[in-house]
Design a protein around this nucleic acid. Sequence first.
DNA 1: TTATAGTGTCACACATTTGTGATATTTGTC
DNA 2: GACAAATATCACAAATGTGTGACACTATAA
Lengths: 178, 178
Amino acid sequence: MAKQKIIDAAIAVLNEDFSAPLDKIAAKAELSRRTLHRYFRDRAELLEACRVDMMHTWQTAMMAACRQGKDPVLQLELMLYAGIDCGEKYAFLDTLQEQAPATTQDKAYAAARDNWFRHVPALQRKGMISKELTVPWIRILFVQMIRSTIQALRSGSVVPNDIKKMAWYSFRRSIGMA
Amino acid sequence: MAKQKIIDAAIAVLNEDFSAPLDKIAAKAELSRRTLHRYFRDRAELLEACRVDMMHTWQTAMMAACRQGKDPVLQLELMLYAGIDCGEKYAFLDTLQEQAPATTQDKAYAAARDNWFRHVPALQRKGMISKELTVPWIRILFVQMIRSTIQALRSGSVVPNDIKKMAWYSFRRSIGMA
DNA sequence: TTATAGTGTCACACATTTGTGATATTTGTC
DNA sequence: GACAAATATCACAAATGTGTGACACTATAA
């Protein structure tokens, strides 16, 4: 589907340069700018479509991840993998979220994501997560670990197969897990 | 000095949106766009000034850090702190480096930064750094840890005093150190 | 007070980006 | 081949961003 192709291109381009001209997005999608405009009235509409698409992708991946286990540690691992699978979509969504004020939908998204982090204090008491770290810091680490993975994949200097394992290893240890 | 004020504003704005209009930079610097143009002929000149400023800041911090110890682990810790002290400058410089082809000066910068990472294989053999991780991945983690710190500071949700400690703790452990 | 340096405001030409209409050209299907 | 759907190309007006000149408005020092 051309529409999805455009959205994917837009996410890829805007993630690197938020004010990039539509030509660049069209080029990335291998379409003319004119065709892009046939699917999206204007820049704002495209941006909104990106937001919805990213949210949907992330939610779907998250749901699948969370269904698989009740153990918070396993859930966290699966959440990280879900974020990685969403790739740029997750990172860019996170950026967009900062720029625009939260709508009702956004709040649902944020709630879904934040849900896990409620477990942190309990895990800290159990000594599974370092007590030196704060919850906001751990959240930031989580997002940045996904960004690191994206960058590693894009740079091509790391073998794709190894990345997920390395990411989980690094993230797990960065928050004080064994 | 107004010139420095503009450069700082430019780094802050362009770090978030590389194609942001000059109006935004001028606004951030609390100056009119006309005044900005009195200091910098055009966008390219401002960008170049940013690059030089960031490189200088980073080099200075790095030199100071490296003078303090011969132990690679201590050096790494001090390098991380240097990066954090440079703040956005380090992260943006890293971005710029990707976009523009390396000049002679850039190579010197890159060399200084990369210098430390030569120690990694030796440290891996000693079992101080995880053998599961690759050098490119460790480099990415280093940069992203600085970005995490910037974000944490900017969000205001983490106490500044704690950040450096948390960043070093998380980075150290993420690469497999004790 | 009078210079003078730094800044702000306004106006302007120019370039780029954006959104749209008109008209081919391609693509797939019958 | 004939047809319809999707796309490309071109042209164009409107909006936005860029760089510059002219001039007015502070300050501060001589």
